[in-house]
Nucleic acid binder design. Sequence first.
DNA 1: CTGAGTTTTTACAACGATTGACATCCGCTG
DNA 2: CAGCGGATGTCAATCGTTGTAAAAACTCAG
Lengths: 333, 333
Amino acid sequence: MATRLSDVAARAGVSVKTVSNVINDYPHITAQTRAKVEAAIEALDYTPNVSARSLRKGRSDFIALAIPEMASPYFAELGAAISRAAKKRGITVLIDQTEGEPAAEKLVLDGMRGQLIDGIIFSPITTAPAKIELAANAKPLVLLGERHAGGTLDHVAVDSVQASFDATTHLISIGRRRIAAIGVGGGAGTGAVRRKGYRKALKAAGLPLDPALELAGTGYHREDGAAAMRELLALPDRPDAVFCFNDSLALGALRTLADAGLSVPGDVAVVGFDDIEDGRYHSPSLTTISADKEWLAENAVGLLLDRIAGTGEVDRRDLTVPYTLQIRESTAG
Amino acid sequence: MATRLSDVAARAGVSVKTVSNVINDYPHITAQTRAKVEAAIEALDYTPNVSARSLRKGRSDFIALAIPEMASPYFAELGAAISRAAKKRGITVLIDQTEGEPAAEKLVLDGMRGQLIDGIIFSPITTAPAKIELAANAKPLVLLGERHAGGTLDHVAVDSVQASFDATTHLISIGRRRIAAIGVGGGAGTGAVRRKGYRKALKAAGLPLDPALELAGTGYHREDGAAAMRELLALPDRPDAVFCFNDSLALGALRTLADAGLSVPGDVAVVGFDDIEDGRYHSPSLTTISADKEWLAENAVGLLLDRIAGTGEVDRRDLTVPYTLQIRESTAG
DNA sequence: CTGAGTTTTTACAACGATTGACATCCGCTG
DNA sequence: CAGCGGATGTCAATCGTTGTAAAAACTCAG
């Protein structure tokens, strides 16, 4: 059933070694031999046995992408982009849903998948930076998402502070004064970094910081955004704008606003972060920070492959994804 | 760097094979030996090498899920569900984006991934049923999506005809008379099957079938739905309801309706198909056919694993996913 | 204390591809 | 014609794990 290298060799009338040479682009091969071999490969529909090759070579051309959940739009789009970027280079991506569980993240980091994986692109939620550093000794690893101070790992991310600053400043520039933030979090994660940019923008504009306007929430889903928005509407003095730390939150918030019969951006302007497809087609369409996902994917994969191929001498690299503020209906009526 | 079976054996003071036996739950092992070995495994942090195991056993505990694109919400949710279902059984899912390209689909079907994969769950777009049948000789394969007449493969799908009938009938029951359909297609795919249910419902209600109300469109994305809706609105006699063959189309249509200043469901009622998350949080929320994705995932994985484990004697099975019609704001103002 | 019967453990050979050291065989050049 | 470089072939070893079959260790009856 499975065709082996030796089958190909037999059909082409050459030795196994020669076939292997052809496949691995060994330099000294006549065009004629190569043609014969390739014809045989074609005819027999031969595919090298990945297990055997990987066992022998110590490389599988598989990489893992560890994300919290693939059903959430941002990660789905990211996963798709990374898959594509990898496929272009002959690499297969294995997607791992950690669901934000520490156990799952740990599993990914430890010898994960029994040495099958050549490297990992990791978008962590729970795992502490220190732990990640540790695990990275085993496999090449590229980190996505917020920058971890003092890290030694390759890293690709948007400048979230600056982007959040821009988003908030945009709201200020259209005349808003009571600007809320949804998705605020502690530690060094997304929620903290984006808050930093948000606060900076308020300060720069001389606006007061009202703690009641900084909403945490349990997650980054629509329902969390919807719930947070309800809280905001219940305030005695409700905000005239909201900066949501991702688009899903923003879409949830928009839903609550619609239910409340408030107009967007008339009564409340809304800005998101990520530029997921849903936001573009939503009514009103969502103003958001749009990072170049293709760029991100290309570079994350590139970085990882360099690291896999490399001798380990290369310095740590830290790439910043270009972004733009997409102004749409939710702030520009 | 990589700890091997032999390292564990050395540390535990037993033979390599004994360690292997412990790992594979071979029956005859003293509790004492087992404990020793397990301690060593623990101490050395050993993980079996997947490649070697797969090479030897001919099984990898990897399966592939081939879908058109993982960034589209339905498939993202499906992928997540299947991943989860597989993980529960100790299986890893490799997701393959075919992007609807025949070449990619073919690649998936042929010896794909060099024998690494134990089986495939396939949600085809372009590949003709006959071709799939052919390829299935190589690897166990479970088909998702519309039923292919006379197939011999295991198959899991919603009864699309019945579901479409229900969706359309619902629109009729709320008093609509000019009901359009978006996403109509030829052949035996989704677009054709759902149209069948749609037409059946019209006929059952004694409503005329107006070809101008059956819109094809290039794809199943929001933009396609939006474009189709624009066409419908340009008609001299516009419809008072639309049945979209998936939720993305429906969300696109809703966008167009909002832009046109029409009320939903007041002027036009809208029904979708798939029950993706976006639809639930959209404003108005989307009435849709909700198939049980967890059920689908569990059963697709179960079927495939049976087939992989089995002797091949089992009869072909054809499962129908339970669904409900979720009535929401887009039809019930 | 022996031999049969049973349990527990081990030695060895695969699985398929790759690689390295060498041995050939070819046509050419000097 | 010696000698050289290019192109293939031979052979064996290796990657880490597991199936087969047989050896070793134990149990118990007699």
